[in-house]
Design a protein around this nucleic acid. Structure first.
Lengths: 191, 191
DNA sequence: TGCATCATGTAATCAGTTACATGATTTT
DNA sequence: AAAATCATGTAACTGATTACATGATGCA
């Protein structure tokens, strides 16, 4: 149930509305966790009912009112408990890898366009992360002596950057492999 | 619904029972997709009912009978259709990164043990993948001229290897960062 | 005698996705 | 006039996890 915890972390970093959280999940928090607004609203409601969060109705001029959520005592305690609990190392879930292995039973060359598209998407994401790194951590605008919170945000971002770089290099390997295959691809029977 | 497709690919590579599939999902297919036996049995049943798979009861001596599944025509067609359909580039889901950012609101040093544990797990996985690579692809026992299917299996395995190496390097970065933080970690309010 | 392996399942719950739904304001 | 942004939600469905459940064989 890590969405709950991701929300707690994000709200501790800065209180905000469901809408604002949804946008954060397209940015910083989204580097390592995704969620749609539907999911977020549902979870916010549940966590508020459970006393994990406090809400404050914020009237706005020229915009719909919003509900600003912040972390309440029990929420902070729950996060703390989770932080001290060991979690399982994640395993991958990579559709594209399924496709690559499946291509042996179809036309491998037909996959080239798809792989190139993925490469572009990861390359865009990398550029976006690098721009964020300069803006928030390494550029002249960024506050020079970073506190612990920002150091930790930075190391997580570096993880995202390393992931995208690795993925791009791998997709290049995949493309070279696909190009290297002749035309025929006889079904193999191995594991 | 990529579990369906992962099962189709695995059964095309080699027909087998639900139990056998579950073990493959702990090995080769598991490099990029995980599934438990409960999930697999349920999906096999559904796919058989939909005519995607054929079953054959195989009596065994000294062991319980098993149901050997293989891919039927419609299953192969469904896989082919999926291979030609574009899919979205995946986004990460990384609990540990949530914890790392959350550590700013707790004791960052308390996370060191957990990160070390994850590092060991990834390091073990890497060793396992590398052993598999030698055994199946690069070692003297492996068939020298690889066919398309095996080339594709190999490039997927190389992806797993690259992922584990990248992750280990990143976890080292995380550990260095955690050690580098003094003692105090004042809550920051940024996004 | 007890544990690991082989083999298959059900039931309940939880998490995530997709589709539907509304309505004001601001920008092009 | 249309599209984008801000803001919040419900409902239905699909997918994944966890717990429960059984039973034989082979090995230490």
């Amino acid at each position: 149930m890590a969405l709950d915890h991701a929300i707690l972390v994000s709200l501790l970093e800065k209180p905000g509305s469901g809408y604002e959280l949804a946008r954060r999940f397209d940015r910083s928090i989204g580097y390592f966790w995704t969620a749609t607004h539907q999911q977020i609203y549902r979870v916010l409601k549940r966590m508020e009912a459970d006393g994990m969060l406090a809400v404050r109705e914020v009237p706005q001029q020229g915009r719909p009112d919003k509900k600003e959520y912040s972390v309440a005592g029990p929420g902070r305690a729950a996060l703390s408990r989770w932080l001290h609990d060991p979690i399982e190392p994640e395993s991958l879930r990579h559709d594209l890898a399924v496709k690559i292995r499946g291509a042996a039973f179809d036309d491998p060359a037909a996959l080239i366009g798809e792989v190139e598209r993925h490469r572009r998407a990861h390359s865009d994401r990398l550029a976006h992360y690098l721009a964020g790194e300069v803006r928030d951590f390494t550029g002249p605008e960024a506050p020079a002596p970073l506190d612990a919170g920002r150091e930790l945000q930075h190391v997580v971002l570096r993880g995202g950057i390393a992931y995208e770089r690795m993925t791009i290099a791998w997709l290049d390997d995949v493309l070279a492999t696909l190009h290297g295959l002749g035309g025929a691809a006889p079904p193999a029977a191995t594991d």
